[in-house]
Amino acid sequence: MDWGFIFERTFSAMIGPEVMVYALAAVGLNVHFGYTGLMNFGQVGFMAAGAYGVGVSVFWLGWNFWVGVLFSFVYSAVLALLLGIPTLRLRADYLSLVTIAASESIRLLARSRVMQPITGGVEGVNQFAGPFYDLSPFELGKFYSFGPFKYLGRDVWVLLVGWTLLILVTLMVRALMKSPWGRTLRAIREDEDAARALGKNAYFYKMQSLMLGGMIGGLAGLLQVVQKASVQADTFNPVITFTIWTMLIVGGVGRIWSPIVGASIYWTLIVFVENTLRQLPDGTRASLERTIELSDFNIAMLRFILVGAGLLLLARFRPQGIFGSREEMALDRR
């Protein structure tokens, strides 16, 4: 087994593009669920909105890339508005039904034959991110090494921009949550009626929260497609939403840095397990394939089995997350 290779992969994954994108989407989800108590089960829909916002405006409308970037913010905010209007006056579970349904519908619509001229259908949209890479100070095709980390020049550029944005957005969320505005959100999370009785328009605040978190999710989707240089409908599968949920709960719901910590831990673990399994000696591998059907395909599926099991067990035993405060957890049990 090539442990050097496994560790190189694992280290690179720790702060790699996936962690960056998922952590950002998790920051948005944290605004929704962690601070406001909104059950958004369709974060991937906001990511798709951000991604197609830029993809469609460049591919179909022929707009400038940067105008497309602006448009993708507007688009994810509008999506939040549309989903919020029918649901935010109702009990929490209605939002979850509508968001999961909408996120899957967005994927189906984007990949459909009818939308082919606009979204590129199943093939999606490519070659729209040129202006972004034109600004890169790094040679796009060259490998750069930093200690244990090793990335292509284009990835270094994406990561630099992405992580800067991630940290800026996280700091912005922190500032907001420390303000009276954030206090009101947390109050609504704890008890909406109490907040209303004290003169807070809960519906309005929930809508603001849904839009803010949705736009952050849209930014995550935007970064993802810029990094991949293509918009593919099927990358916005609902299971991504729950990967993000798992990351958030691992890091600790309603804590500022938890999305980054959770995404990094979760993704590092996944990459380590997958690469280790793939690098197993042939004999071991063959016997595993015989006994527990551990084919290449099934190694990929293992990731999702772990997401499911992780989410189930975390929600059951550590709903505040591995790093959640014990004190807050004790309050939940009351």
Partner: peptide, 12 residues
């Protein structure tokens, strides 16, 4: 959230 985890677990 548990039902979601269970759903993904069973599906995969």
């Amino acid at each position: 959230v548990m039902t979601i985890g269970l759903s993904i677990f069973l599906r995969y």
